[in-house]
Nucleic acid binder design. Structure first.
Lengths: 113, 113
DNA sequence: TTGACATATGCCGATATCGGAATATGGTGG
DNA sequence: CCACCATATTCCGATATCGGCATATGTCAA
């Protein structure tokens, strides 16, 4: 056995900085592949590959528009990520219990090392 | 040139299902490595390695407790992820513009294919 | 110091990944 | 049908990753 997790889930898809950049770029609206590539300074095949991954996890939809193929955002897949991280929200909202002093303790302990 | 993104950022750290499991497990409180391993059905070295990654990106802190080493959550690093995904929130809150019909169009177009 | 327990590290094999270049596929217009 | 433009796919090398196993390091207690 070797590797377990594939790129075929949303968490992995957005682990790639370039793919996050693509998602951000598509926020205002659809774009053809070439434009994505140009705008983000990558090669056409590069953009195509990243878009493929994003499409496979459902973060992006494509549609033919004449000679071109327009890619558009479908960010609903990001919701689980938002929710999952949200589950930890209370840990950075200090209002919650003695987390802060606890973290201080940890810091101190590691430094003493 | 080859690979760009390393595991050394939060997005990559949480791309691993096992590491997400660890973070969830640590939510109630600190745990020694062995317990983490046991609880999640992984080997001790396995747990140790994942915890290392989590520590390197700052999602986890460790502190010596006698013979053991207790790992505790420091979820503040998840905030950027929460925020980044939150930037797309309007795309899954239908109340926003004609996204929905737009997505329908895309769906339709792909199916027609 | 020695022994027992807890944790970390090193090495390995299998596989996945990314980027680049070349090339294949697809669609459009003449 | 044939050039032309847009996009996808394939092949490649370099590297990163994960899991497993063996072993090193660390820490206590007697």
């Amino acid at each position: 056995m070797a590797r377990a997790a594939t790129t075929s889930d949303v968490f992995n898809a957005i682990a790639e900085p370039q793919r996050r950049a693509i998602l951000a770029l598509l926020q205002p609206g659809e774009r053809p592949v070439t434009e994505v590539a140009q705008e983000l300074g990558m090669t056409q095949p590069g953009a195509s590959k990243h878009l493929r991954v994003l499409r496979e996890v459902g973060l992006v939809r494509d549609r033919k528009a004449g000679k071109q193929r327009l890619y558009g955002l479908d960010a609903r897949g990001l919701r689980p990520v938002h929710q999952w991280t949200g589950g930890f929200e209370r840990f950075w909202n200090e209002s919650f219990d003695r987390l802060d002093e606890y973290v201080q303790d940890l810091k101190q302990a590691s430094q003493e090392d």
